[in-house]
């Protein structure tokens, strides 16, 4: 019943999950991305955080930060929510749902960073927040332009040759995802690694890279 119009980019679909007029799907490509997101979400659930070792400058001493599991409860929850949003974005067959999942990834990323009480890390979270908020404009703007110009948000329709998606909508979509995923924005990327909690911090990078990979597929296919 459902056949992807373009199979020369990510191969034929493997599995289709229909929710009324919203039809999610897996191709080999999205299945690999989904599996990767799932793996790191599980790792975030089952891993205990590391205890960072820091140098005491001006001497030979080093110290290990003492971290209790209680400190990481919120960070772990946010990492889990981030993983779920990423999983949704990987299998979404609808542009609006994809943008919703992207914005949720942005929100949870801020949560992962902001959970740690350190001045530098909180500054990073603040900067993350600004970028993510600004990025929602092009992100949802792209969905609005696509709907207004083509009359549909379903990727099954948009990937077909009959519908031409405006270039500006594609550019907005990529910009929006870049802002939510924050992959290329260096405003705070290095600062975040001051925060302990490797399995959770890693989810930020997992989600941003996977969103970027998915949006490349969507933009090329449209």
């Amino acid at each position: 019943m459902f056949e992807l119009p373009v199979t020369t980019i990510e191969g034929p679909e493997l599995f289709v999950l229909e929710f009324g007029d919203i039809v999610n799907y897996f191709t080999v490509y999205t299945a690999v991305l989904f599996t990767f997101a799932l793996l790191f979400t599980i790792l975030a659930i089952i891993s205990r955080p590391e205890r960072q070792v820091d140098f005491a400058f001006g001497g030979d001493a080093f110290y290990t930060k003492d971290i209790t599991p209680g400190q990481f409860r919120f960070q772990r929850f946010m990492a889990l929510a981030c993983g779920m949003a990423t999983l949704g974005a990987m299998m979404s067959g609808d542009v609006f749902n994809f943008t919703l999942f992207c914005s949720m990834v942005g929100i949870t990323n801020i949560g992962i960073v902001a959970a740690y009480r350190n001045r530098h890390v909180l500054n990073a979270a603040f900067q993350y927040g600004i970028v993510a908020m600004i990025a929602t404009v092009p992100l949802f703007g792209s969905a609005a332009i696509i709907l207004a110009t083509t009359g549909t948000l379903s990727m099954w329709e948009l990937f077909g040759p009959a519908i031409a998606v405006p270039l500006v909508a594609k550019i907005f979509l990529v910009l929006g995802v870049m802002g939510e995923g924050m992959a290329p924005f260096y405003v705070a990327k290095a600062e975040i690694t001051r925060a302990p909690g490797a399995p959770y911090v890693l989810m930020i990078h997992v989600s941003s890279l996977l969103l970027f990979l998915r949006v490349v597929e969507i933009v090329i296919s449209m």
Partner: peptide, 24 residues
Amino acid sequence: LLLFGIYLLHKIVEHGMGLSSGSP
């Protein structure tokens, strides 16, 4: 595109390898 994706995922490996140890 899948090859490109896998290459990008290597960045996660590099990052996770460094962060997970706790070493400076």
